[in-house]
C-alpha cells in the first residue's frame, strides 16, 4: 500500500514495528513503532506519558516527510 500511494506522487511515511518487513516491501520513509498491537501507544504507561510517546513518534514521522531522501531511510 505504501508503494502504490508513493507511486502516485504522494510522500508516505510508514510507522510500523517490524522494520525488516517494511524494508522488504519497499517503504522509503520508515519510522519504527512501539509494538505490534499498539504501534503508537504504550498501555503500561499513564495516559499523559503515553500521549507524549505518541507525539514523539508523530514528530519523527513529520520530520521524515519533510526530509529529502534518495533511498530507503529509517528515521530512528
Amino acid at each position: 500500500m505504501v508503494k502504490e500511494i508513493e507511486r502516485a506522487g504522494i510522500p508516505v511515511v510508514h510507522i510500523c514495528t517490524v522494520v525488516p518487513i517494511s524494508q522488504t516491501v519497499g517503504a522509503n520513509r520508515i519510522v519504527p513503532a512501539v509494538a505490534i498491537p499498539h504501534p503508537l501507544g504504550e498501555p503500561s504507561q499513564p495516559a499523559q506519558k503515553e500521549k507524549e510517546i505518541r507525539r514523539k513518534l508523530i514528530d519523527k514521522a513529520l520530520e521524515a516527510l519533510a526530509t529529502e531522501i534518495s533511498e530507503q531511510t529509517v528515521f530512528e
Binding site: 500511494i5 502516485a8 508516505v12 510507522i15 514521522a61
Partner: peptide
C-alpha cells in the same frame, strides 16, 4: 492502494502517514 491514492490526489493531500 491504487484506488486510495487516486482519491488522495484528487483531494489534494500532500502527504500520508501509514500505520501498520
Amino acid at each position: 492502494a491504487i484506488s486510495i491514492a487516486k482519491d488522495l490526489v484528487a483531494d489534494g493531500v500532500d502527504a500520508v502517514i501509514l500505520t501498520s
